[in-house]
Nucleic acid binder design. Sequence first.
DNA 1: CGGCTTATGTACGTTGCTGCACGGACGGCG
DNA 2: CGCCGTCCGTGCAGCAACGTACATAAGCCG
Lengths: 262, 262
Amino acid sequence: MTVHSLTGTAGDAIASHRVARAPWKNPVCVLKREPVANLLLSGLPRKDRQHVLARCEPVELKFADVLCEPARRISHVYFPTASFISLVIPVNNLASLEVELVGNEGMVGVPLMLGVNVSPLRVVVQGPGPALRMTAATFLAELEQSVALRHNLQRYIYVLLAQLAQTAACNRFHALDSRLARWLLMTHDRAHANEFFLTHEVLARMLGVRRVGVTNAAGLLQERKLVRYSRGHITILDRAGLEAVSCECYKTVKDTYRAALG
Amino acid sequence: MTVHSLTGTAGDAIASHRVARAPWKNPVCVLKREPVANLLLSGLPRKDRQHVLARCEPVELKFADVLCEPARRISHVYFPTASFISLVIPVNNLASLEVELVGNEGMVGVPLMLGVNVSPLRVVVQGPGPALRMTAATFLAELEQSVALRHNLQRYIYVLLAQLAQTAACNRFHALDSRLARWLLMTHDRAHANEFFLTHEVLARMLGVRRVGVTNAAGLLQERKLVRYSRGHITILDRAGLEAVSCECYKTVKDTYRAALG
DNA sequence: CGGCTTATGTACGTTGCTGCACGGACGGCG
DNA sequence: CGCCGTCCGTGCAGCAACGTACATAAGCCG
């Protein structure tokens, strides 16, 4: 993992870093991106925000970097801006299932807030790009400092709980087509780009199904002109169409977030 | 201390959910019970514990009482002692899935700790019996008072998160037999009795499957002499056998709890 | 006892996904 | 250009769970 710090405080420019240098092979991803801020931080009162941002280190996350393994100590918290990160639970060293997708609406490292310094899940970079990070110790100090930060992050944990429950139900009841559509929508929201890199293989591990299952479901979405993909590059063509195919879980989760943090 | 029944308070609005007769009155369940304390409270330092307990109201929960509906305000928090409570997510007003089972190792009303006063889930009494409860306001005041309480409950939320992730994976990957076995084990832990009341119908709604599916799976467990049941009365005969049939998720979750709160 | 309600058992075709296997196609690279 | 690794597509048998429908059995009440 390459981590280069941009010296100088992020100041009030919040998280509007300059755009990443080619995160993956295809530059198109980057070109379509606009500067993004982390919503948990940008919502803070000016003073708290500046204080926190001054202690954040901008980093560039690379695709497939593993930021933490289950049962290992959490060294840093991450606030993605244009990157996004999967929280994955491995099962039997074989299968795995994504239980949470974190983009600029969230953070990684929640257990620290709860008095625990190990992660229960595997943390994998799914979408390359910039993020802000803090050491665990600094983070805890900031929590002491800022009531607003505490407040925001507590509500974020609430959203997380609700979202986990919804995802569990979704995995249980909804067909693969719908779940795939939902996943693409969530990713679209967090990628801040119409195109992103994701092979069927990776998608399969996220959704907890066979690679071929994804191929079929994706074929269906492509037939209907909702997405286009080729060798890992997925392009969203028709959001509304995807929302129609996806289950209500997508909307439900988004509403929960808006109600608690919007 | 006076023991208040729920009937006449919150219970009235929801009493319609009760089943016609009263199988939960079966004395066998009760006879086998020993006095139990709530572990989140019993672990507190003496002084804090007394302070909290003095502000708790003992209540007797009845089977199938609905303590809270999704998106409704949380009026009380509950610390089950010998009772246990399901957190259920309804889907499409038809199916539903249990995402959490709370007994004397936990509490109901977690969102209050996170600055949110509505529940994302339906809260249903699964096992009748005593619990301690506090009004939302009192609870928040107690949180201010006691660092130890805050600490304990934060860690409990951590366990909750890990558990939700594990359950999601379990629902995705494991066969019904295993999941049923796991569920029975979890219930056994919380019921503090070898026998409890649960029809296949109810179990099916918890596991998110057809009633017939439960009948088959349960038949298998009974063939192997692991459980015995008749018209809603399930008796655990062979815990070790059940653990063998169940998936590792049971052990994993239990270990997580022990590590964080044991 | 007889009638009713609730709980459990059985049966059958259907479906969505699995496990496995292999064929083809695109793109990077020498 | 041609090789080769990665990624995508197809085919097929198998299976667990689904939806539906109906049949028995156990307790409750009059």
